[in-house]
Write a protein that binds this DNA or RNA. Structure first.
Lengths: 200, 200
DNA sequence: TGTACATCAGTGAACGCGCGTTCACTGATGTAC
DNA sequence: TGTACATCAGTGAACGCGCGTTCACTGATGTAC
């Protein structure tokens, strides 16, 4: 199992996806090319196209995987009631930081086949989780406008994730823990008006 | 002046920038190529490279122009005091919607020369405006944590701008005016806790 | 257990295209006298 | 006002490369009998 020099790779699909994510992490989707992906996966340059049909096919698979992982990340730490939405925000931001390639591709639907059945299923699952989380925010916390509060939370998390990835946040955040910084902005949205409860 | 078929174009620089922004609007930065840009600008395919040195040079000029326009957009509607930060957010979101190509390139520093002197100057100018606006937020409005409030405002505006561009906001916003929706989320951050003052 | 055959996963040579870039050039404009 | 020359803006032919994709093939695996 340690040597992988068999004619049949055995796990080519996963190996190709890993290599593709790695390349996109390094230089954005424009840096992705099938031949280098094949090189990194240790297969012939035609193998990725064989498996995924073509380049958009590979990116569709990557986006699908991304939505599946996002759904999982949103579920992590989910407990009913207090603070759930904030935890989902943390999960969202964490996912984007851990899987920047997936995150970026997911939000560039021009790169893949946005109507692929598997992709649609995974995306739907992630969105349902998002909406479910928004529904749990205590309705009286913020002017009983639940949809707007949920949208604001999403904007906050997405803004944080994208600005962080582009390097724009570094001068602002400094040496603080990014998660703490994000929690501080989220607290501004959802905390009780009284003395700040989260101030360690 | 109406016919532009002279050997010397006269305003090639602007024409090339316009064509480049148009192409990126249509299909993202990966769709940009110098030959098509030249075609649209009505010049030979080598002209863009002649003017801007190379492709990153063109994108550097585009990003510089973007930062200049963003600085202007942030200044629009700026009045000292109440609600200034919210107006800057609106300006930010409006700029991203009107100039998606510039906005996108600006936040992808891997595509251009981020240390170009002109670009640095324009970017600095835009950032100073952003910081100045954050400084004007009434300090007692939100737990006297001014930097965090300013960051939250930026995250909100940037999240809105990017999600809107990727088409993710359409199902949420529906047929409402996007600017109103954005204002509603911003109000959540900065409005007085009392009965909502903005509820037309 | 052995043989024949079908199927599958991946190969590697080749094709063709679009691209960024180069380079010797040319047409227009500006300047000196 | 006229001529000579330098400079500048843009040309167009050509180069070479990397890429996605194709296609006939081959080696390994699975299945029927």
């Amino acid at each position: 199992m340690t040597d992988k020099r068999t004619y049949h790779h055995g796990d080519l699909r996963r190996a190709v996806l890993v290599a593709a994510a790695q390349m996109i992490d390094e230089g954005g989707p424009s840096q992705l090319n099938l031949r280098e992906v094949a090189r990194r996966a240790g297969v012939s340059h035609a193998a990725p196209a064989y498996h995924f049909g073509d380049k958009p096919g590979l990116l569709t698979a990557l986006a699908t995987q991304g939505y599946e992982m996002l759904a999982d990340a949103l579920a992590t730490g989910t407990r009913s009631g207090e603070g759930e939405l904030e935890e989902m925000g943390v999960g969202y931001v964490g996912f984007a930081a851990e899987h920047p390639a997936h995150f970026e591709v997911m939000f560039r639907p021009d790169l893949y086949r946005a109507d692929d059945p598997d992709l649609v299923a995974a995306r739907t699952r992630a969105r349902e989780r998002l909406h479910a989380g928004v529904g749990t925010v205590p309705a009286r916390r913020r002017g009983d406008d639940t949809p707007t509060a949920g949208l604001a939370a999403w904007l906050l998390a997405h803004g944080f994730a994208t600005l962080r990835r582009s390097g724009s946040l570094a001068p602002v955040v400094g040496d603080q823990d990014p998660e703490d910084v994000f929690r501080a902005t989220a607290a501004l949205l959802f905390a009780e008006p009284g003395p700040s409860r989260r101030h360690r």
